Each structure stands twice: as C-alpha cells, then as structure tokens.
Simulated scan of single mutants.
Amino acid sequence: MNVQPASARLTSIDALRGLVMVIMTLDHTRDFFSDAHFKPTDLQQTNVALFLTRWITHFCAPVFVFLAGASAFLWFARKGRNAPISGFLLKRGLLLLLLTCTVEAWSWNFLNDFRQVDGGVLWAIGWSMIVLAGLAKLPVVIVGLIGLTIVAGHNALDGIRAQDLGGFAPWWAILHTGEDVALGNGWSINPYYPLLPWIGVIALGFGFGSWLQRNEPGTPFKLIAAGTGLTLLFIALRYANVYGDPDPWQVQTTPAFTLLSFLNCHKYPPSLLYLSMTLGPALILLGLLHQKSLHLQHPLLLFGRTPLFFYLIHLYVIHGLAVGLAAITGGPVREIAGGGIWSPNLPADYGYGLASVYAIWLVVVVLMLRLCRGFERLKTANPHWIWMNYL
C-alpha cells in the first residue's frame, strides 16, 4: 500500500463524529423515555415530529462506520508505511465483539443473562474491522472499490431468503437478512445489523481516508460536491422506485406523509438509498467543517475523540436515569431495568412526550460532556495505560 506522509488528525472528522454521537444520544433517550411504544417510522401510527426525531438519527450508524474506515487509514498514514494496520484492526475488532457481548449487553438490559447476543452497531463495526484487517493488505484503491461495489450492489441480493439456503441460512441471516439465529440451550444471536453492507461502508471509508489525508487544495469544495452528487443520486433513484431499497415509497393521505414515505428507507440492512440519503449530507457537512477552526476543547471534538467511551457510558447514563426516574415517580422500575420500552410488561401509558424526551436528552449530553472531559484528563495524565488508547 502506498501512502504519503500523514498530516495531523483532521478535526473535521472528530467534529462530525461528535455531532452524530450527540444525535445518537437523542435516539437512545427516546428508547427509554418515550410514551410512543411503537416504531416511530411506522406511518400508520407515527406523527411528523416523532418520525423526524427518529429519522435524523439514521445518520449516526452510516457516518460512524464510514468514519471508522477513514480513521483507520488516517491512523495508518500517521504511523507510517510499516504500521501494523491489520493487527490494529484485528485487535480493535475483537475488543468490540467482546464489549458487545458483555458491557454493552448489560447496558441495554440490566437483567441480561448474556445468552442473547444483540448484533447492533458495535457488533457490525467489530466484524467489519476484522474483515478490513484482511482487506487492508490490498492496494487502498482496491479496498475502496470493493466497498463501493458492496454498497451499490448488495440490494441485488434482497431476493435471496435465508430459509431457502438450508445449512447456510444462519450465515446468510448474519450477513444480509438479519433473522434471529438459534444456537441451542437458550443461546441466540439477533444480528439486526447484518454485516455485508456495513463491511462495504467501512471499506469505502478506508478508501475515502486515503484521499482525505492528502488534503489537496479545494478539498472542502470537493467534499461538498461529492455529498451533493450522492444526495441527488438518492433523490433520483428513490423517485424512480426501481432499485436501491426493498421498500418503495408510496403516495400517502397528505403531502407531508408522502414525503415521510419517500424518506423512510430500509435500515436493517441499510439499503443503497439509506446510505446515500445519510452519507451524502454527511459529506456536505464534512466539507463545511473542513473550513472551520474549532477550539481543541469544543464539545463536538471532545466527543469525537472519545467515541467508544462515550458510546458505552451514555447507555448506562440514560438507562440509569430511566430507572431512577421510574423509582422516584412510582413507575415500573423492573420493566425499565429490563430493557426500557421494549419490555413486554411495560404499562401502555408509561413514558413521556417528545418535549420531555428532548429535555432529558440535553441533560444527558451535559453529563456526558463532564464525563468525557474527566476521561480525557485521566487518559492524558496516564499515557502508560495502553488499554485506554482503545477507548
């Protein structure tokens, strides 16, 4: 792999990553506090405000995985030609899988017995990094092209059903369709982030990182142009309803809900249109941030520099607040401790409206700001604690 000497870490990546993590916190706050016990994207039950509250958080996973790939290349470029990029990605991927089955599992469900592995975003990033550890041995252009091919082409496989594949069915569920996989004796995997498209996103991000680290003249304009082109591609393909998403949009009873149908793309697995709809505007924003000079302690930069710590801790903060509030108000403490609004025995009238959800979200963000600052100070004061570099 041929790389040029790397520049300092790009603050625009940290700022964008920090922004999507703040938005992600809104989604998880809604998960534990909302009085809407249904999918916010269900057009038969939702309203515009609730739909958009969920829709804006769709940006989080694609941007985070894409930037994980870009950051991996920037790490390699910064360390130099002989940097052990494959070993770095392999160890980090394995760590994320371990955290998925332990620390993250208990954060969602304080009563979890760990026999159900929820294959969410950490699961997807972990396996994607492990695959990228192998792909990184190839020329970076090839890695990027592999990623682009997967992202653009995986919807052509939508017609292949796991139940039609015999013994390969569990593997296809993990790779593309996302059905639960029973392992026996009460153990199971719920791979609701099927891996194939996410592998494509991280590989595409790795190739993107190669271009971004050169920081050529006109980079902000090129980022904005690329993001605009990708957004226009989404609009054109979505309007045509011919390829790129298994759920075609339909005319609804009002223009507003017709627009919501247009935006309501398939996330599990993420379709080509879902990824275009999210990564396009993200590239535009990255181009705008590329021109900004942010103070090193800006909250977005701080969150972007401590992503794994933020992710794991914010789940405990939100879940802990939800249990505490339920205890204070005489609410269903056991049900909230057992998984929030997904608990089957949660009272139908439990929860709070969107205004309250947004207020609690802001409280969580302020708490996370203080916690992340404390963590970064601890990390700076103890550079010999090598394990902290993985957080």
Rank of each mutant, 00 (worst) to 15 (best):
V3Q: 13
A8L: 12
A8S: 14
D14T: 05
D27T: 01
H28S: 06
H37V: 03
P40C: 03
T53E: 12
T53R: 00
R54L: 01
I56P: 04
H58I: 01
C60Q: 11
F64K: 10
A77W: 01
A83G: 11
A83Q: 10
A83Y: 12
L90F: 15
R92K: 13
L99P: 02
E104T: 10
W108A: 10
D113I: 10
V117S: 08
A124F: 04
W127M: 10
I130Q: 00
I130Y: 02
H154E: 12
G166L: 08
G167C: 03
A169P: 06
P170S: 09
W172A: 08
T177M: 08
V181L: 03
G186I: 07
S188E: 06
N190S: 13
L196M: 11
L196W: 08
P197K: 07
L204D: 05
F206V: 02
S210Y: 12
P220A: 08
F221E: 13
L223C: 11
I224F: 11
F234W: 09
I235S: 02
R238H: 08
Y239M: 05
V242Q: 14
D247V: 12
V251I: 15
T253H: 12
A256T: 15
F257T: 11
C265P: 00
L279E: 09
G287W: 10
L288N: 04
L300Y: 07
L302W: 00
P307L: 08
F309H: 12
L312C: 10
Y316N: 06
I318H: 02
V323W: 03
G324C: 12
A326R: 02
T329A: 13
E335R: 01
I336Y: 06
I336T: 10
W342C: 00
P344R: 09
D349M: 06
S356P: 00
A359D: 05
A359L: 13
W361M: 04
W361G: 01
C372H: 03
L378M: 14
H384C: 00
I386W: 06
